[in-house]
Design a protein around this nucleic acid. Structure first.
Lengths: 233, 233
DNA sequence: TACACTATGTTTACATCGTCAACATGATAG
DNA sequence: CTATCATGTTGACGATGTAAACATAGTGTA
């Protein structure tokens, strides 16, 4: 049942929920969306799940903990997700979106300079995963991430956007320098793999703390991306 | 590795195992077939564990399955490893050893050419993980790998060898080109991070099938490593 | 030889986990 | 008013990691 209240002239909608075991102990929980029922818990599961993933790490993540965080029985998530993996995929979708936003902001920073776009994007790429190390697993390193594309390409087609954003920048640069390109830069695949590989590798090494360095990692990355050997010609 | 020998018409099984702390002291220990005490269960757990990891993947790996594969009760591994993580660390140790061997072979291929050494090592690096994708998680991508160094540096100190092998090659190259180095190549950290990052990133992208390419991946990697933009100056 | 100690097995038990089946409730459509 | 469907709940299951208590075998020592 939906309850509408006016607090300080603001219209707030509530949904009537019930407590875990006893129907007598009911409480009101705010609804984030106009649509009632299903949408609410689903969104909350994704949100709390992402938080849990951040806080406790991928390997300590459990469906039951997410359910508990939402004050809901341990099987309630099954009304919205077919399995634990399905929930994780939905969370990964959310992460893809954030990651893509991050890359697109980098592109916007240099509207007319393809090289700078790619360098800035590389920097943002590394920075994003250094700041959100759990997303690394979500997007790339788990078994799930491996199957993400194949299994859910239709449902979550937007998840491919980060890669598209990256590739498009590479393509633009190649188009621009087509005439005087030589070596790797003449081979689109070689250029894409080397650009992406470098950035991807640095992000993982730093985020996973495999690269020991006393100074500021991100400054080092900036130095690498903006100097000679990267996109030099 | 299990070795079967016939001595005086008697079939004797041996297991190739290693001493807890030292890599170099590998020895053969006899396995008795039908005794209550399984003479070399520790080595067998590592061996079967590695096999299981290869076959079923990291996320489907379980202590109880390894125990079953060794025909032993599900708590027997606790006599040799303090936890599941401890077993995985021992397996990771084994994987580190193989990986390092792979890198050192690459170095030996070009005894007097530092640049070629590094290129060949990069190629072997990628090839190794493309051929053994589960090792990627074992060595780098699991939560455990994250803590590997800190927790077990003393016990498994040799596990650092692959990185040392890599770093030494970078150092040699830098020493060699010290006089005419410029840009990144003048900064050891920048050079190490960019070299390692590129190779690491390509290995992961290809092994995890995140980089879509119709042709031969390894040829593409070779092209990248042996042409202009990598170690060019 | 006898015996105690230690290393290395076993069984049992427990909490947590993902998942399923059976059931309850509440919104909604007829 | 009632049947149906969406979305909750409880309870059960087997798999898992791990701890505790117990069993056995090999070893060292009297």
């Amino acid at each position: 049942m939906i309850v509408t209240l006016y607090v300080d002239n603001v219209n707030i909608k509530f949904i009537l929920c019930y407590n875990r075991t006893k129907f007598s102990e009911r409480k009101y929980v705010e609804v984030s969306n106009e649509t009632y029922h299903h949408v609410n818990l689903k969104a909350e599961l994704i949100e709390k799940g992402l938080k849990l993933l951040d806080e406790e790490g991928y390997e300590n993540f459990s469906l039951r903990k997410v359910a508990k965080a939402c004050n809901v029985s341990h099987t309630a998530p099954y009304r919205h997700f077919s399995s634990k993996d399905d929930l994780i995929m939905a969370i990964a979708f959310e992460a893809h979106y954030k990651f893509n936003q991050c890359l697109e902001e980098a592109v916007k920073k240099y509207p007319n300079d393809n090289k700078s776009q790619l360098k800035e994007m590389g920097y943002s790429y590394v920075k994003f995963f250094v700041e959100n190390p759990e997303y690394l697993r979500l997007l790339f390193l788990s078994d799930l991430a491996n199957n993400f594309k194949n299994k859910h390409f239709d449902t979550y087609e937007n998840c491919e956007q980060p890669f598209q954003t990256f590739y498009r920048a590479v393509e633009r640069l190649q188009e621009e320098s087509k005439n005087h390109a030589a070596g790797n830069d003449a081979d689109p695949n070689a250029m894409a793999l080397s650009c992406w590989g470098l950035v991807h590798g640095m992000a993982i090494l730093i985020a996973k703390k495999d690269f020991a360095y006393e100074g500021d990692y991100l400054e080092l990355v900036k130095k690498i991306l903006w100097s000679g050997s990267f996109l030099s010609r």
